[in-house]
């Protein structure tokens, strides 16, 4: 019977400028039953190999920094407990479909650019002064977009998206969730600008409705809904633009 308190982690390592290609390194962690994968990585870094690189911050599934492939599936390392994983070695790899900077750290620059490209802020319908008071919203108007505002930018959905894997320029699920968070907001008037930003091949039209993005999302944002309802919007926009008066 193997000691349940000890667990084997097989971690994909890559040191730029030194390694030609990533390769797995094996580590054994103690007291494994009570550790999250993130805590296991921290204990490895503290006691076994200080050069191990990975991202984290909040340790409570809020900041979105600790996304990685755990046993082949995109997960938040801080909310994945070792004892919940099937027995045997645990493989830990950087998120699929992203360039690897070092060990478990991936490049996020492309994702940040995509977020910038969709006007990630409210473009008010009518500018109001402070004296005029706040913008009001009914619970139903809030419900129309609220779940999309729960996105923590963890990029797990991108690691699950084969079309992003094929085409790194595809706007992708997470940025579309943010787009819908604003397009669905009753106070916002930027819908047309955002639709124009995603009407190309690299916009919504790279999506083939695979749907796994929504399954791996740790916040139940349903990014596949954000992408596909905007496919509908973009398709109507394609034909109705001729009727629109600018």
């Amino acid at each position: 019977m193997p000691d349940p308190a000890k667990r084997e982690l097989r971690i994909l390592r890559y040191q730029p400028g030194v390694d030609a290609a990533p390769a797995f390194g094996t580590f054994w962690v103690e007291n494994a039953e009570n550790l999250s994968v993130l805590e296991a990585l921290q204990s490895i870094k503290d006691t076994l190999d200080g050069s191990l690189a990975f991202r984290w911050s909040c340790r409570m599934a809020v900041c979105g920094s600790c996304g990685m492939m755990i046993n082949g599936a995109p997960k938040l390392a801080c909310s994945t407990l070792l004892r919940d994983l099937p027995p045997g070695p645990v493989t830990v790899e950087p998120l699929n479909n992203f360039p690897i900077e070092r060990d478990l750290v991936i490049s996020v620059g492309g994702f940040v650019k995509k977020i910038e490209s969709i006007y990630p802020y409210i473009i008010p319908k009518e500018p109001r002064t402070i004296a005029q008071g706040p913008y009001l919203q009914t619970p139903a108007q809030l419900a129309a977009y609220e779940s999309f505002s729960d996105c923590i930018n963890c990029m797990l959905c991108y690691a699950a998206c084969p079309q992003f894997g094929e085409n790194p320029d595809f706007i992708g699920p997470g940025a579309m969730a943010l787009l819908q968070r604003y397009n669905g907001d009753s106070r916002d008037a930027g819908r047309q600008k955002r639709l124009d930003a995603i009407h190309g091949e690299d916009g919504v039209w790279s999506c083939t409705a695979v749907g796994i993005c929504s399954e791996v999302c740790p916040k139940s944002v349903d990014p596949a809904n954000a992408v596909n309802q905007n496919k509908t919007n973009s398709a109507f926009d394609f034909f109705l633009r001729f009727l629109r008066k600018e």
Partner: peptide, 19 residues
């Protein structure tokens, strides 16, 4: 950053997608 709408030709996929 250049405006996102520029250099961003409209896809003709909507035709096939609606069919």
């Amino acid at each position: 950053m250049s405006g996102p709408a520029r250099d961003n030709p409209r896809s003709i996929s909507p035709i096939f997608w609606l069919l």
